[in-house]
Amino acid sequence: MIAVVDYGMGNLASVAKALRFLGARPQVTSRPGDIARSQAVVFPGVGAFGEAMGELRRRGLVAPLLEAIGSGKPFLGLCLGLQLLFEASDESPGVKGLAVFRGRVRRLPSRPGLKIPHMGWNRLEKSGIRNPLLRDIPEGAFVYFVHSYYADPQEKKVVIAKTRHGLPFPSAVGDGGKLWATQFHPEKSQVWGLKLLKNFLKEVSS
């Protein structure tokens, strides 16, 4: 079973639907026990960093998530789910993130002609580090973004793909093991998004 973590932030239906479409058995859940006994965890989310951390704490999900990541089981953060893996965010000063990756989430630069939120299709530039999550996804593949903040990791080696919007920012990160996260929405990114989720599911079954 793949746990799709529900903490009241955003639309989980489309993530679960995409996983089901690919033949997986996702369970949308906010129960710590489900996360503990799942084979893999998908951690989506849309909304504000501080509010999300508040919801995770209120539902007692911080420890189960950290345990799942620590156990080495496949874990995929999506959008806000990527940002929450970092230490803190300009969006909610003073709120501590899950701090699995070192670094901070910053606001995309705003200047005339550059629209914020960064909303729409944009290209992936793969970092050259081979990664099973991005296997067979071509350089320059278009994926779908909706965000105003981006992660600024301290260790550049966690960046497995970047994208440009005003500046180059990490659009996918990985810890070198089975922890990954994307700033874009694979469940809304048609062919290459589904390919990425399929790659993730392959890691779950291997």
């Binding site: 489309s14 639907k17 995409a18 479409f21 779908y144 809304k188 990114s189 048609q190 998004g193 589904l194």
Partner: peptide, 8 residues
Amino acid sequence: VAQVLFIP
């Protein structure tokens, strides 16, 4: 529609 589409 949500059941069949993988674009926004």
